[in-house]
Amino acid sequence: MRTSFGEYLDALRARLLDASGRLPVSVRTDILEGRIAPGLLNAFVVRVRASATTVTPEHIAELRASGLDEDQIFEATVCAAVRAGIERYQAAMNALSEHRDAS
């Protein structure tokens, strides 16, 4: 039986938190929940979520210079991108639910 999309997103999110990674689970959780991430990472994560087309090689270099390695940048980017997807899914499901309840 096909997994529902909501179940898939939950599983995706759980995997990002359960899997061993270079970023602490607490940081990955903060990014996935849309909370403030530590230090320079926060500005980067906000940029990925809100306007990824404005990310430049210099932003990546800045993160490296601050002490983050590429695996940490990879994990932060994936978590931020998935957060953006989850936000849109939740917004749509809330609107659908509201409409169904009112109908």
Binding site: V48, R49, A52, V55, T77, A81, A84, G85
Partner: peptide, 9 residues
Amino acid sequence: CIVNRLADT
């Protein structure tokens, strides 16, 4: 919306 962000970042 997820993959677009990966592509650009």
